[in-house]
């Protein structure tokens, strides 16, 4: 039967952007291999409502597994269902996103199936019937290309590896019987605590405004927040490690080697010097803007556009102009 397994991630019953990316990527791989996309949608009761949306992005079949145990992410339940599906259908490849769930689930499934796993792929191609995966190493200082000849090839797709594209297919819905019992699980997600204020996460935002030590103190981050807000819900606030370590900002906002890896359309670095460990987390951003008073700051070597000067004068002006454009 073969097919490409595409994990369709949801939160609170809604598909996430990551699911569109994964199905888009799976469609390309399936076309190259001449096989079908099998999207697998797991969640609480009613999650199957998202099936048609997956068809729009190219799923030939959508397998829906609903269970009360799946109201929240179930690490062991999802692993069992995904691994048995892949095995029974003899899938050629299994694609996941690089979200927190994808990064947790994909290596579990690979471990369960006893196959290798390539994470955070930036490119997935098909050569001679096998998946050829390119991915960053050494925080993006080098990229590696590896041919995954064993089946299934288990891969998680890096942010923006595939831009979601509509490519409607039948999307026949089939029900997966998920006989899972929470009592069998050694690890259960008990709770999800939303960060205050339902903010957009840096790893998902198309625009990031990041602040560093140049801000001088936590109170001045309101300049960064206001600039982000001016983009009207499309921008997230990021931070350098220096300001996270100083307790000015939460760790969830840290970009870099020991923080998050991001690849937004636009990354605005304000009062950030551009240390190699910071660059590690944002160097693949599509466009980078730097605002720094030191013309020699390393961030200017990477930035597409730079403004040299005092951020306390530049940022308020920028915020004002962005507001004008957006209104």
């Amino acid at each position: 039967m073969a097919g490409i397994f595409a994990f369709a991630e949801t939160r609170d019953g809604e598909l996430r952007k990551a699911a569109h990316e994964v199905v888009t990527g799976a469609r390309k791989v399936a076309d190259a291999l001449g096989t079908e996309v099998h999207a697998v949608l797991l969640g609480g009761s009613g999650v199957g409502g998202a099936a048609q949306e997956l068809a729009r992005y190219g799923a030939d079949k959508v397998f829906v597994g609903e269970s009360a145990a799946f109201d929240r992410y179930s690490p062991e339940g999802f692993t069992t269902v995904a691994a048995s599906f892949i095995k029974e259908h003899g899938c050629d490849a299994a694609l996941f996103s690089s979200s927190a769930i994808g990064r947790d689930l994909a290596p579990r499934v690979a471990g369960r199936l006893g196959v290798d796993y390539a994470s955070l792929a930036t490119r997935v191609e098909v050569e001679g019937g096998a998946l050829v995966v390119t991915r960053p190493r050494y925080s993006g200082k080098v990229f590696s290309t590896v041919t995954l000849s064993a089946k299934p090839a288990v891969v998680s797709l890096g942010p923006n590896a595939f831009t979601p594209a509509e490519n409607p297919k039948a999307g026949t819905v089939e029900t997966l019987s998920v006989a899972v019992d929470e009592a069998d699980f050694g690890a259960i997600v008990r709770e999800i605590r939303a960060a205050a204020g339902e903010k957009l996460d840096v790893s998902e935002a198309p625009i990031i405004v990041s602040g560093g030590r140049g801000l001088g103190g936590p109170e001045n981050f309101k300049l960064i927040e206001e600039l982000a807000a001016a983009f009207g819900g499309k921008a997230a606030v990021g931070a350098s490690r220096a300001v996270v370590d100083a307790g000015w900002r939460p760790h969830g906002e840290q970009v870099g080697q020991t923080g998050k890896t991001v690849a937004p359309q636009l990354y605005i670095a304000v009062g950030i010097s551009g240390a190699i460990q910071h660059l590690a987390g944002m160097r693949t951003s599509r466009y980078i803007v730097a605002i720094n008073k030191d013309p020699e700051a390393p961030i200017f070597k990477l930035a597409d556009y730079g403004i040299v000067g005092d951020l306390f004068q530049i940022v308020p002006r920028l915020t004002e102009e962005v507001r004008k454009i957006m209104s």
């Binding site: 960053p136 190493r137 993006g140 200082k141 080098v142 990229f143 590696s144 290309t145 590896v146 160097r283 693949t284 980078i288 730097a290 013309p295 200017f300 070597k301 990477l302 930035a303 597409d304 556009y305 730079g306 403004i307 040299v308 000067g309 005092d310 004068q313 530049i314 308020p316 002006r317 920028l318």
Partner: peptide, 19 residues
Amino acid sequence: LKLQYPPERQAGRIVGEGP
């Protein structure tokens, strides 16, 4: 593995100074 360097980012430009 086959290793390669990432594509060089084109050197950026300083748009100007100050607000």
